[in-house]
């Protein structure tokens, strides 16, 4: 191919404009991207299992999100849903879920990227890889639960002692209103995976990775089922990296929005005990 002379080496208006086209890459953006690689690798690794699980589930979905690093205790949230529940007409989007999304640690919240399973048609979604079905062997029998247990009961039943028993608790107040039933099941797996990845990052002291992962969660699941858990993890990550002002602000928000949430005490402890590094 014959390479034409570049316009900025010629003259005229094109040269004048192109000479102003220099871009410098922000260091903070690079750091955020690198911090996200661990979570991305985790999602990609778990994606196969998640897709297989979502495909093969017949009657129930069981989720556990262990927020073991919060407050030194183990708080587990188990969510059980019957397929019938997921397929039921949504009672409405979870109140406050979108508003819950806090500002990320160093930048404004994004506006343009939607759930990767939906809007970005040309980009494969995180868990859409077709995977041969694995024989479904749920070790927990599907149990239909009342759909409207209060949050305290839902999570509290699993706090601390939850690890000892896979007893199913009702799911979060309302399923996502905007997607079809099958994607909901898949999305719940995806959500759990992202939250678990953020939790793991907090556990190993990798706050930047945790925050990058939580940014992704909030962007992808604006009406996600794990909003309070994500917010609690963000508060702890911010505390861990010494951004106490932001952590305390979010903790106050957490207290206001979830005054009876079992994680509230852990959240408050996280912002009270953390030394300020800034």
């Amino acid at each position: 191919m014959t390479e034409p002379v570049r316009l900025r080496e010629t003259g005229g208006a094109a040269r004048a404009l192109l000479s102003a086209g220099k871009l410098s890459v922000p260091h903070a953006s690079r750091q955020r991207a690198l911090a996200f690689t661990s979570a991305a690798a985790s999602f990609a690794t778990a994606g196969t299992a998640a897709a297989a699980g979502a495909t093969s589930l017949v009657k129930s979905v069981v989720m556990c999100v262990c927020l073991g690093t919060l407050g030194g205790g183990v708080a587990s949230l188990a969510v059980s849903e019957t397929v019938a529940r997921w397929q039921a007409p949504p009672a409405g989007a979870r109140p406050g879920a979108a508003a819950l999304a806090p500002q990320s640690a160093g930048r404004p919240r994004p506006a343009a990227v939607a759930n990767p399973a939906g809007e970005l048609e040309s980009v494969p979604a995180p868990s859409v890889a077709p995977v041969p079905s694995v024989a479904p062997v749920p070790s927990v029998a599907p149990v239909a639960q009342p759909a409207t247990l209060p949050e305290r009961q839902r999570v509290g039943a699993l706090s601390g002692a939850a690890s000892a028993s896979p007893t199913l608790a009702p799911a979060a107040a309302a399923p996502r209103a905007e997607s079809a039933s099958s994607p909901r099941v898949s999305n719940l797996f995806d959500e759990q995976r992202v939250i678990e990845s953020a939790r793991a990052a907090v556990s190993r002291g990798d706050a930047p990775s945790a925050l990058a992962t939580l940014d992704y969660y909030e962007r992808s699941y604006a009406h996600g089922q794990f909003g309070p858990e994500g917010l609690a993890l963000r508060i702890q990550a911010l505390s861990a990296q010494g951004d106490l002002a932001r952590a305390r602000s979010l903790a106050a928000e957490f207290r206001q929005r979830h005054p009876h949430h079992p994680l509230l005490a852990s959240v408050q402890a996280a912002v009270q005990s953390a030394p300020s590094k800034r």
């Binding site: 690798a41 778990a46 299992a49 998640a50 188990a78 797996f189």
Partner: peptide, 19 residues
């Protein structure tokens, strides 16, 4: 509790190809 993904898939997560 087992890892929920393992519960659902019947396969331990450790058997998956790591990225």
């Amino acid at each position: 509790l087992e890892h929920p993904l393992a519960l659902a898939s019947g396969a331990p997560a450790s058997s998956l190809a790591r990225v």
